[in-house]
Design a protein around this nucleic acid. Structure first.
Lengths: 326, 326
DNA sequence: TTGAAAGCGCTAACAC
DNA sequence: GTGTTAGCGCTTTCAA
């Protein structure tokens, strides 16, 4: 039923070769008469013929497709990165295949192997398994967001530690001397770096760090867990500034403060990693770190293309965040 | 460099056929000795051999891949649908290729043609061009979210009109007699249906509809535009209830009210289409319509698979929303 | 200017 | 039980 290049060739009374040349814009280069070219193109259009990319890729050994593997595509952060990767890829005539690991290490391997067996040209990966070295030797690969502490392969990172240090210092500058940190039970290096940044800010400013002021949240039970943490930090430990390890927890914090500790709203200030529009019109004030999403996407793709096209393997690059002070 | 099935066959001292059968779990069926099977599998593992899916698909005429085309993958709504589609697809051994049309009609066609030329087995589409009939005859296709009013192909929809009618009536029940509608300049049928729902609610309750109470927002200038609309509706037209055509505009409304009309917060109530977590802890109260995201995803995939596997083309299905009253 | 033919890696009907 | 071979649809070298 479906038309193939052979059929087009037959109809045009030429060989497959000729059709192939014309279709790949090499007609002139190959000195194919414009009459023949036009005839072929007309027939192609007439039959709405679309070359089979599978066959083409098989023959060329190139799919012009890259894989984009993330823990959760419904997370707006990854969604936005995906969107920009897609835009950048388009300019370079690449298609993007997005794969969702659902934060599952085994699923991630499976997905990557699948992408590889589909002959994708490269991979951009936010990995769930940051402590394993690259198991996929031979495939161009760029890591982002979840970077192993001693990453040996290409990556695009941001300075988690420094940024968190900055927002903590902003709270200090505003007069807060007791500052708590609401964190996650997580092995992820970016989370660990944020904790370090918080601590460094305190130490740098001549305060002592107190482990009682750092509370891990049970992510499966965020809401209650944040309320409890705030109660400890604000009521028992007398903190007036709170740094949250991410925006989701900070949003919970805003809710908890309004719901259970509204008498403290004027006294307390928040800071957190990653912004949310909601912070524009919420009390208490939430100062936040903004990741350069577009830049991250752009750099990932550039680095990957350098590997694919020129076999140049850059080491890694750390991008700058910005801070919205509120 | 890369190992192929031929190489495996050579190493095992058998033919490609035998290897192929073993790899596709048809070894027993084909009565291949377990000794041979084990030997082959060992070599495969040893060389970390992964069959080239391109060649496989070319040969089989099936890619086990479906395309998922949306206007904006960074929109959490589409992100969540994508995630669930992906989960459902996995159970059926399908991979999903996500494509972003960036709300561009031409780009959308291009993407779909590309997917087709990559021989994907079917497409799930939220289209930017709802008024054109299916141009992609022959390819299994299911529409969602953006449905043409006289859609002839498979689709999964929700009842935009009825849901909006319900939330409007909730505001009426709470004692609001003057209710405004903040909408979008959009040709999209789902938007038009929401407007109709709002009007029906008023008429049903014995009120007259007043076109002055329906204001279109300039989406490129949301913030200011919403402030202006609220000013007209609340201050000039004396509305106390406002229905927003979607959650993004409602969020802007919450911000605007808090920022410019805070004296009205106690008197005014909002309702909108699509929920946001923020509405849990914002004032004024925002009653919202929740789309059954998981169900939408599940139904899209089931319908598509029925087309792919059994050539059964269901017409369309309208799913039920729920309402969060606040 | 154009075409024949080999090859990309895999499947499967058919033969032995 | 296993192998031969044609074929999936395209690219590209080499020959004419």
């Amino acid at each position: 039923m479906k038309v193939s290049i052979r059929k087009i060739a037959e109809l045009a009374g030429v060989s497959k070769t000729t059709v192939s040349f014309v279709l790949n814009n090499r007609g002139d280069e190959k000195n194919i008469s414009s009459a023949t070219q036009e005839k072929i193109l007309a027939i192609v259009k007439d039959h709405n013929y679309k070359p089979n990319q599978l066959a083409r890729s098989l023959s060329l050994g190139k799919t012009n497709t890259i894989g984009f593997v993330v823990p959760d595509i419904s997370d707006p952060f990854y969604g936005k990165i995906a969107k920009h990767i897609d835009s950048c890829a388009e300019e370079r005539f690449f298609k993007v295949m997005i794969a969702n690991s659902h934060e599952d290490k085994n699923k991630e391997s499976e997905l990557i192997n699948n992408l590889i067996s589909r002959q994708i040209d490269g991979i951009i990966l936010a990995s769930t398994q940051v402590f394993e070295s690259n198991k996929y030797k031979g495939v161009p690969l760029v890591y982002f967001d979840r970077i192993s502490p001693n990453q040996k392969d290409s990556f695009i990172d941001i300075n988690n530690q420094y940024s968190t240090e900055q927002i903590t210092k902003l709270l200090i500058k505003r007069g807060h001397s007791k500052i708590g940190f609401i964190s996650l039970t997580s092995y992820l290096p970016n989370i660990q770096d944020r904790i370090t940044g918080y601590k460094n800010a305190l130490i740098d400013s001549g305060f002592v760090t107190d482990e009682n002021n750092i509370i891990d949240i049970d992510y499966n039970n965020k809401k209650e867990s944040v309320v409890k943490a705030l109660k400890t930090l604000l009521c028992t430990n007398n903190c007036t500034g709170i740094v949250f390890v991410n925006n989701v927890l900070a949003a919970e914090g805003v809710w908890a403060l309004n719901t259970y500790f509204s008498e403290l709203i004027e006294k307390v200030e928040f800071a957190c990693f990653d912004n949310l529009d909601l912070f524009d019109y919420s009390l208490p004030k939430v100062t936040s770190v903004v990741q350069p999403i577009e830049d991250i996407a752009k750099n990932c793709l550039e680095m990957l293309c350098d590997q694919i096209d020129n076999s140049i393997i850059h080491k890694g690059k750390v991008l700058k965040t910005t801070i919205i002070e509120r």
